[in-house]
Simulated assay, not measured.
Amino acid sequence: MSEKIGLYAGSFDPITNGHLNIVRRASKLFDKLYVAPMTNTSKNYMFTYQEKKNFIEAEITDLTNVEVIDSQGKLSTQLAQQLNAGFLVRSMRNPDDFGYESGVASINKVLDKNIETVFLLANDKYATISSSMMKEVAKFGGDISEFVPPAVAQALIKKLRKE
């Protein structure tokens, strides 16, 4: 039987506890799970690829089948092909995400008909969390400690104070 390999790609700017919950749950579905901080040309990033990679790696040290990889300048389907990943992991928090994510899945299916998209619904506890919302709350002095790892909260506050 062939190894089940999944790829969870996202901008992760910054990684939230919701993203990490998806990583933990997806790690149980696959023999190998790759997590890939990606580039979305329509977004302005606060954190560098290396910072995002470091944040994720610090939080998944106990997950032996998960690896954070460099994915800069590639489409998710291209990266999946390179990794022999047959599955793209995507998460949805609400009905609005469904519309967007189903469109992404459709495009990915056209790009590679052999790759399946697996949708994981956000845990209720994390259903309202988004990276952009965390930046906004932190910018105006709100407490984000319940929504992101401590190192992310500290880095976010530090970067926002420089602006």
Rank of each mutant, 00 (worst) to 15 (best):
V110P: 00
M92S: 10
N108G: 01
N94L: 09
M92W: 09
G73W: 02
Q72H: 07
V104M: 13
E67S: 11
I56M: 05
N84I: 04
L88V: 08
F55C: 00
Q72R: 14
E67G: 10
E57G: 12
L79C: 07
A58Q: 14
N94P: 09
A85E: 08
K109V: 02
R90T: 00
L83N: 01
N94K: 04
I69G: 06
V104L: 15
Q82F: 00
L79T: 15
S71Y: 10
K74N: 09
F98C: 08
E59R: 04
E57S: 04
G99A: 11
D97T: 04
R93G: 12
L63Y: 08
L63F: 05
M92A: 14
F87Q: 03
E59A: 11
P95W: 11
L63M: 06
F87W: 08
S91E: 11
D97G: 06
Y100T: 09
D97C: 07
D62E: 13
V68A: 04
N65G: 14
M92V: 14
S71V: 13
I107R: 03
F98M: 12
K74D: 01
N84F: 02
V68Q: 11
L83H: 00
V89S: 08
A85I: 02
F55T: 02
S76K: 07
A85F: 13
Y100R: 09
Q82H: 06
G86R: 06
M92Q: 13
V68R: 09
S102D: 08
N65S: 15
E101Q: 11
S71K: 08
I56G: 11
A58G: 14
D97Y: 07
A85T: 07
I56Y: 04
D112S: 15
V110M: 11
A85S: 07
Q82S: 15
K109W: 01
N65C: 14
T61P: 05
D96Q: 15
N65D: 14
Q81W: 02
L79R: 13
S76T: 15
R93Y: 03
S106I: 06
K109D: 03
A105G: 10
T64P: 04
E67L: 03
L75I: 07
Q81I: 09
V89N: 05
K109N: 05
I56W: 01
L111T: 00
Q82G: 09
A105Q: 01
V68H: 12
D112A: 14
S106G: 13
S102E: 07
V104R: 11
A58T: 14
N108Q: 00
V104I: 15
I60Q: 08
I60K: 00
D97A: 10
D62Q: 06
I107H: 06
F55E: 05
S91V: 00
S106C: 09
L88M: 08
A105V: 04
V66D: 12
L111H: 00
L83A: 08
D96I: 15
E59P: 05
N108V: 03
E67H: 09
S102F: 13
A85V: 03
V66K: 10
